[in-house]
Design a protein around this nucleic acid. Structure first.
Length: 194
DNA sequence: GGACCGATGTTCT
DNA sequence: GAACATCGGTCCG
């Protein structure tokens, strides 16, 4: 499978967030592929976005958001969870896309072992998919055009199936509809109220 | 299915 | 001290 080029990530964050739907997020664990199709994303639009980690600046833990596009920004939160972002726009922008849900595809046995949950609970949330794919702090700043953690072409999602809503798990910034997901996909994380 | 709530560590005020 | 881009257990339907 073909990896999108660096230029895919250099584009506006909302465009990348939308077009990541249907792409495959993949890992190689002990020589075996573990992957899933991206079905839910959220855009975090840099220092001007009040809920983005980038408001803390390029010297904060969000430093990778200001790095080269097409790299991973993995952060640790709530004392026990990792979440993964894809850095977007030209270097220095501080923008990224949070991967919120996958449809598990390859290496499901490994995901079951990592998660110890039912198959419907493998990758339907940002911290869950990180656990399923064994993504942690070690993969922070990893190049997604590399061969440890990467993104490659997957499926084509019809435009009519892409839904746009407010982001999840934030208190401010609810007026922006910067979350995208594939309508009808059972792996999309729980639907918030508005 | 939903509401509530505790876990647990890093970062920032 | 508080906040936190979350999750899973418990209790209630």
């Amino acid at each position: 499978m073909k990896k999108p080029p660096r230029s895919f990530y250099t584009r506006p964050t909302l465009t990348v967030a939308k077009e990541l739907l249907g792409k495959r997020l993949a890992r190689k664990v002990n020589g075996q592929r573990v992957s899933g199709i991206i079905v839910e994303t959220e855009a975090y639009r840099g220092p001007i976005d009040v809920v983005s980690h980038a408001v803390h600046g390029p010297e904060s833990k969000a430093a990778p958001m200001f790095g080269e596009p097409g790299h991973a920004y993995v952060y640790f939160t709530y004392g026990m969870h990792y979440c993964m972002n894809v850095v977007t726009e030209p270097t220095g922008s501080g923008t990224a896309v949070l991967i919120r849900a996958l449809e598990a595809d390859e290496g499901i046995e490994i995901m079951r072992r990592n998660r110890q949950r039912s198959d419907t609970e493998l990758t339907n949330g940002p911290a869950k998919l990180c656990q399923a794919l064994d993504i942690d702090k070690q993969l922070n700043r990893e190049d997604l055009l590399g061969n440890k953690l990467w993104i490659e072409d997957g499926q084509t999602v019809p435009k009519s199936a892409i839904k746009q809503t407010a982001r999840v798990g934030i208190s401010q910034g609810r007026e922006h509809q910067w979350r995208y997901y594939v309508e009808g996909n059972s792996n999309v994380s729980a639907h918030p109220k508005y």
